[in-house]
Design a protein around this nucleic acid. Sequence first.
DNA 1: CCTGAAATCAATTGAGC
DNA 2: GCTCAATTGATTTCAGG
Lengths: 153, 153
Amino acid sequence: MNSSTYYLDDIDKKILNILQQDSRIPFSRLAKMLNLSEATIYVRIKRLKENGVIKGFYTDIDFDKIGLSVVAFILIKADPKKYDNILKQLVEMKEVYEIYDVTGEYYAMVKVRVPTREDLAKVLDKIGNMDGVTSTYTMLVLRVIKDKKEIDL
Amino acid sequence: MNSSTYYLDDIDKKILNILQQDSRIPFSRLAKMLNLSEATIYVRIKRLKENGVIKGFYTDIDFDKIGLSVVAFILIKADPKKYDNILKQLVEMKEVYEIYDVTGEYYAMVKVRVPTREDLAKVLDKIGNMDGVTSTYTMLVLRVIKDKKEIDL
DNA sequence: CCTGAAATCAATTGAGC
DNA sequence: GCTCAATTGATTTCAGG
């Protein structure tokens, strides 16, 4: 619980649970499932969007199917004075999908996604050669065992 | 490029680019944006779903706003003979959102999400005490610098 | 905060090029 | 594979409890 925590009642939770699994479900079906009017569903979802609880409705694409099948996590150690600048460069890279500031001996962890291993090698070179990067550690993803995008409310 | 790679033409790519950012956009708007009939958009999206390029439509929820604000990545070293069993247990844990088999000195990387640091401590205890887990390394996420869910097609 | 009904707009189907 | 037109179904608004 923190100050920005938004209270969700049971109806909100049920709506969100369903929308997490299928954002294109018609409000009319949601209304039937929850025994409420369409107008209520409409107003609830509108409010959840306005409050920022719902950040957006996205489409999940099979990256393998479109030839982006190499995924890796890279841990980065850096000179603290140059860290901000490194982050800026990482943010700009289209192969970099996620960047986290983390505790521990490494400063940042990034997730990259590329078509081939050669592309990964290029990305590693680029990151390794950035001014201020003192070392990197790469974990190539061999298999995704679990990837749960939704939360149980 | 691998055997399961599915060919996307320019229209598919444009449709996917837009749907990635807003899965609830009306087909009628997509049709206008791409100068095509609604029926064409309809048929294209249907095919992309049937071919598995579109895996689903989901809703992105602000985890912070609902009180799930602690995120960590945990690297796990394990006895190879007991690894499969460890994975099974990790898959069952609701706090574990992602599990990857990775190359390098660690076997697996998992992403966990919990309400508080105490909850994280409990999860770490649980994983550390699983039969066959020889060591773990935890990186608490301090800040999410980038989290790009879509891909540029 | 909810519903019901009206009005507007969108998804889906099928004939035809 | 596309369009047009018709049908069905969904979203949005608003008056009223």
